[in-house]
């Protein structure tokens, strides 16, 4: 694990170190972009920044970090207006909703409306900041970063034929229920059924100790695959969940990389934040350089998914990935020296 972390750090440093090195023709006037961040400089922001460097587009970035403090966002709106920037970049659901407003509650007094804006890392932009993914209908556009459920289902099915997909969920979370419903609908279309088990609640709180039992129940129900949706509680208890699945010989698929890289999920699919940041910058380029109206730019996710396969788990289960998937995937194999 530590080696992997080291690698990621090295990559980050590499990424951060270079932009200044790009020789560019002296720009007439750089575009001024106001970057409003939620929890500091991370990979999406880096991808956003690198894109301009790589494409030789002169930009002046005004970076502001809210440090997870909602109260600061009001000042950001005022500052962006005062500086009269060319574009605003918002990171995360909170920053985006506070600075740009939900699509049905835009208040020109509180929200930025006259400056074009792009958003990234918003979990549910549809029905939130935008009414439709094909167009925001206003002066903003952006990217999604969660792998769509259809893509997840396809990925699982590309590994091996699927007839019964198991999922453990937290009954308290409305989001989880919506996600499960969605996955069930996809199953109906593509020919698998969804087995669900809710984690036991103790004093109104989910009990981690019950997870292993739920997995065993799913095993008895005859599932081919365990599906691990993006969820804070499951993420915290990922060792319990993936460990139980491995013990029972159930392959598991996780949305997100933690369960694969730092636990025992068999494989996972994720959009890298860096790529999402680049895609967001691409949309910014359309607005700034090519003068496309933000409302005319669809909100979408990167085209290429990062697939991560946990090789030790694969070997223990003896359920091997097809060659094509293996060719596309990054393989995590600590015994062989990390990610390949």
């Amino acid at each position: 694990m530590r080696r992997l972390a080291g690698l990621v750090l090295a990559l980050l440093m590499l990424a951060g170190g270079s932009p200044a090195a790009v020789a560019a023709d002296p720009p007439a006037k750089p575009f001024r972009i106001y970057m409003a961040l939620w929890r500091g400089w991370e990979e999406a922001a880096q991808g956003f920044k690198d894109y301009f460097a790589n494409q030789d587009i002169p930009v002046e970035l005004i970076v502001r970090d809210a440090g997870q403090d909602k109260a600061k966002l009001k000042d950001f709106v005022a500052e962006a207006r005062r500086l009269n920037v060319d574009l605003v970049f918002t990171w995360g659901t909170t920053v985006t909703e506070e600075m740009l407003g939900r699509h049905d509650a835009v208040d020109p007094a509180r929200h930025i409306t006259d400056i074009p804006a792009v958003f990234a890392i918003v979990s549910q932009p549809l029905g939130g900041v935008v009414p439709s993914l094909s167009s925001s209908g206003r002066n903003i556009t952006g990217t999604t970063y969660l792998v769509p459920p259809e893509t997840q289902a396809n990925l699982i099915q590309s590994y091996r034929p699927l007839s019964r997909l198991g999922v453990v969920y937290i009954p308290l979370e409305r989001n989880a229920l919506v996600a499960i419903e969605e996955m069930g609908a996809i199953g109906e279309k593509s020919g698998f059924t969804l087995e669900t088990r809710a984690v036991d609640l103790v004093d109104g709180k989910p009990n981690p100790a019950s997870i292993a039992g739920k997995v065993a129940e799913l095993k008895t129900a005859g599932i081919d695959f365990l599906y691990i949706p993006p969820d804070t509680f499951l993420n915290v208890n990922r060792d319990l969940l993936t460990g139980a699945a491995l013990e029972l010989g159930i392959p598991s698929f996780a949305v997100g990389e933690n369960a694969v890289l730092t636990s025992k999920a068999m494989f996972g699919g994720v959009y890298r934040y860096y790529t999402v940041g680049q895609l967001t910058a691409y949309k910014a380029e359309q607005i700034l350089v090519h003068k496309v109206r933000p409302a005319d730019i669809a909100i979408d996710a990167p085209r290429r998914l990062s697939i991560i396969i946990n090789m030790p788990v694969v070997r223990r289960l003896g359920i091997y990935p097809p060659m094509k998937l293996l060719g596309l995937a990054e393989v995590f194999d600590p015994a062989e020296g990390g990610v390949k």
């Binding site: 990559l11 590499l14 990424a15 270079s18 790009v22 990979e43 991808g47 690198d50 460097a53 790589n54 890298r272 860096y274 790529t275 680049q278 290429r304 990062s306 990054e330």
Partner: peptide, 9 residues
């Protein structure tokens, strides 16, 4: 490239 680096890196 898909790992998230620019070409020159």
């Amino acid at each position: 490239l898909n790992l998230g680096l620019s070409l020159r890196q």
